[in-house]
Design a protein around this nucleic acid. Sequence first.
RNA 1: CGCGGGGUGGAGCAGUCUGGUAGCUCGUCAGGCUCAUAACCUGAAGGUCGCAAGUUCAAAUCUUGCCCCCGCAACCA
Length: 507
Amino acid sequence: MKKKFYITTPIYYVNASPHIGHSYTCIAADTLARYNRQILGKENVWFLTGTDEHGQKIQKASDEAKLSPQEFVDKVVVQFKELWKALDISYDDFIRTTEDRHIRTVQKVLDILHRKGDIYEDKYEGLYCTPCETFWLQSQVENQLCPDCKRPVEKIAEKNYFFKLEKYQKWLIEYINKPENAKFILPSTRQNEVLKFLQINTLSDLCISRPKERLNWGIPLPFAPGHVTYVWFDALINYISAVGEFDDKDKYHSKWWPAELHLIGKDILRQHAIYWPIILKALDIEMPKTIFAHGWWMIGEDKMSKSRGNVVNPIDIVNKFGIDVYRYFLLRDVPFGLDGNFSEGALIKRFNADLANDLGNLVYRVLTMIEKYYRGDIPLADKKIQDIKLNARGEKIKSIIKTLHQAVDASLSGECDFSLPLEKIWGLINMANKYVEETKPWNLAKENKTEELKAFIRLLVEVIRESSKELSAFMPRTAESIKAQLGSDKINKGKPLFPRIDLSSKT
RNA sequence: CGCGGGGUGGAGCAGUCUGGUAGCUCGUCAGGCUCAUAACCUGAAGGUCGCAAGUUCAAAUCUUGCCCCCGCAACCA
C-alpha cells in the first residue's frame, strides 16, 4: 500500500474573527503538508481545514449582527479564507459544517449510534439562566445567581439525548496505554494528563442534543426532529465527513482516513482525546494515528483575550514584516507544544539575528562574490558537489549537507518538532558563514588561487540551495526567491532577502 | 494531602528517564576581518542548577520534606 498523509486542523468556530492562535495551527499544518508533499508526492497528501458554524454562540452573534445565522457565517468564513490565502496556507479541502456532505454524515452517525443504543433519551436537569441561555453547574453558581449576569438561575429539566461515553471508558484507557499507541496523544505530557483524568474520573454521558425551543441553529436529530445536535458532537465529525461516506451497512469508507495527524490547541484536548476516539470506536472506525496538542501564544506576558484588547491580528503582522517572517517566528521561537510569548520585539529580534544576519546575509554575500569574481556565472556549475575536492572544513560541510535532510525529517515527522529542524538548517548556514571567514576568499582572489576559489564558491552555492530546499516547507516564498536568484547557472541577484530592521535609529 | 506543568548565569530555554568536568540562543564586553544588510568570525565575563536533609567515591540529575509560580466551568489554537 502506498503511503499517504492526511492532516487536519480543528475547524474554527466562526463567532469572531481569526487571530494569531488560529493562524498558528494552520501554519504548522501547512508546513507539514508541504513537507509531506515533497516526500510522498502531492497526490498522497490531504490537508483539511474548515469552519464550525453551528451552535448557540453563532445564533447569538448573528442576532446581534441582525443577520440570519447562515448570512452571518457566510460573511465570517470569508475572513478565514482570506487569512489562509494571505498566509500561503495550502489546504486541499475546506469543510464547513453547514455543507450538505457534513450534515448528511452527522445525521448518519446519529442514526447509527441511536440504532445501536449508544445514544439514548433521558432528562437533563440543571440550573439555567434564561437571559444568558446558559446552563451552569452547581459548583459555578453562588447563592443561586448566574455567575455571568448575577440574576437568579432556575432549576429546569428537559428531554435530551445522551451519548454513552462511560461504556467506552475502560477501552479508551487501555487503548492509550498500549505501547504501540505511544504516539496517539502528543506531547507525552498531554497523554499523561488525559490518562490521569480518565483514571480518576468516571465519564458522564455526553448530552448531544439541544431542544429547538432553545436553539435551532444546528443539525436536526434524524430520530427527534424537535432537537438539534450539540455543536461539539457535530464538529468533530468533520474529520470523516470531509473525506468519506458510510455505505448501506453502516460501514465507513474513505480514501484518506485514518488521519495521520489531528493538530489541535491544548484547550480542546479533551474533546479530541476522549469524545472523538469514543465516537469513532462506537462507529467501528479506525483511530487517528496522532493527536497533537500545541501550546498557546501569550501576548507579552498576558493571556490573549478580547476583554484585554490584546488580540493580535495576523494580517497586521504579515503586512508589516512579511508572511515568511511570521511563519518563521511562530515555528522557530517556541518548541511546538509549549506556550510562547508573542511580541513585535521578539519577532524583530529573530528577524535580525536569524533571517537578516545569518540567512539573508549569507545569500547576499555569496551573490556578491559570484558577481564580483565571475561576473554572475556560478563557477563549476556543471559539476556535482561530490566530485569537487575541498579542504577539511569544506568536506565537513559537504557531509552535513548530505545528512541535513535526514535530520530535518527525523524531528519533523517524528515529534512534530519545528524549531529543531530549523535549528539544524541554521547550523549549516552558520557553518557556511564561518567557512567564509576562515577561507578568506578575498585573499584567494588576490593570490590567484583560482581553483580553490571556485570550489569554495561552488560549495557555498550548494549550502544555500540545500538549506533553501529544506526550508521550503517552512518558508515557501523565501525558498522561491532564493531559487530565482541562485537556481540556474547564472545568478540573478536581487535586493537583500531580509533588510535588517534598525531599532536604534528613530522611526 | 485534588490534578498537572514548572523553578538552571541579565532574558529565554536544553540537560534530569540511563548520576561523573553545567550547555545553547539572545544580550554585555574585548578583539579580528572586509565578500556582505554597522552584517560576519574569534575570545571573555557572568550560574552555590528554588530551599533543606538523605543515598553515593560522586547529585542539576536518585530519595524525602518544604517554599514559590502557572493552568485546571463553558467558549476559545
